[in-house]
């Protein structure tokens, strides 16, 4: 186990981050990443590794920058006019903010699931087939059918919808919609899946299903999940990063973070003293 990037909140300014480049199994490495929305400094000098084949969760109070950081990882922030990102984010050693990197190709590798389920106003089938179609992943109808079925199966939704693949995706229940969105992301066969509070709009039963699903998906995908439920982070993730006011306070194995936080802010948060 490598040394965690423990960063003291008030001593970050000049410190060179340690142990960030040496890691070999890091899927994504962020080095001193900063994000500004107009004048607002939303993310301050975040340096963090995300390891392949694990679930990493970002926790922290609202507005702490965890979602902002997540959106940096597939350059979703590009769609916001006033947003500027500086620093480096590397995926498999390549800087994803390099001008040579194509954002379409990047997003095909890094899928994303949003806070509120957002199925397209199309049929269930077309929702799943959307990604493979635009990227040309299926050579023919049979292949496309297979991708759709496997994706739905992996998302645990196949049994519920296999008789109504042509029904509109918006007609499903909230939990089913979110699993549809996960299936939609999986259908592209990404390497990383980002999830931005995927259960915050769902009831406990649907949440449990999604959590189960995340655990299963871990085998094939690198998963990053933003959540403000600490229990969820504890249940699904292997590593946890705690953000506060735009800064990364502490990152480490989930167990360690929850049982033995090094920073008193983290401790305060997980014991419920603020947040």
């Amino acid at each position: 186990m490598e040394k965690a990037n423990v960063r003291e909140a008030r001593e970050t300014t000049s410190e060179t981050p340690e142990g960030t480049t040496a890691v070999t199994d890091a899927k994504i490495q962020a080095v001193r990443t900063n994000v500004h929305y107009g004048d607002k400094h939303a993310l301050k000098d975040v340096t963090l590794d995300i390891r392949a084949g694990e679930v990493t969760s970002f926790i922290g109070p609202s507005g702490c920058g965890k979602s902002t950081f997540l959106r940096c990882l597939n350059r979703m922030n590009d769609t916001i006019d006033s947003c500027r990102v500086s620093g480096t984010v590397r995926m498999d050693g390549e800087d994803i903010y390099d001008p040579k990197i194509d954002v379409v190709q990047l997003r095909a590798r890094v899928g994303m699931v949003f806070q509120k389920p957002n199925p397209f106003p199309k049929s269930i089938y077309d929702n799943i087939a959307y990604g493979p179609r635009i990227h040309g992943l299926a050579a023919n109808k049979d292949e496309l059918d297979e991708i759709v079925v496997t994706s739905l199966e992996k998302a645990g939704l196949l049994a519920e919808v296999k008789d109504r693949m042509e029904a509109p995706g918006t007609g499903l229940s909230g939990g089913q919609q979110q699993r549809l969105c996960i299936a939609r992301a999986i259908a592209v066969s990404p390497e990383v899946i980002l999830m931005d509070e995927p259960c915050s709009a769902l009831d406990p039963i649907a949440t449990a299903k999604i959590e189960e699903l995340i655990d299963e998906l871990r085998e094939n995908y690198t998963i990053v999940i933003v959540t403000h439920s600490m229990q969820q982070a504890a249940r699904v993730s292997q590593r946890t990063a705690f953000f506060h006011l735009g800064e990364l306070i502490e990152v480490g194995d989930t167990e360690q973070i929850f049982t033995n936080p090094r920073h008193k802010l983290t401790q305060g948060y997980i014991t419920g003293r603020f947040g």
Partner: peptide, 24 residues
Amino acid sequence: EMTAVSGTPGRRTRDLVAAGIGRR
């Protein structure tokens, strides 16, 4: 079967996307 064609599924996606990107 996908894995059999070109290594990992992610690898296959990357190749196919790159192949179609110019047209898109």
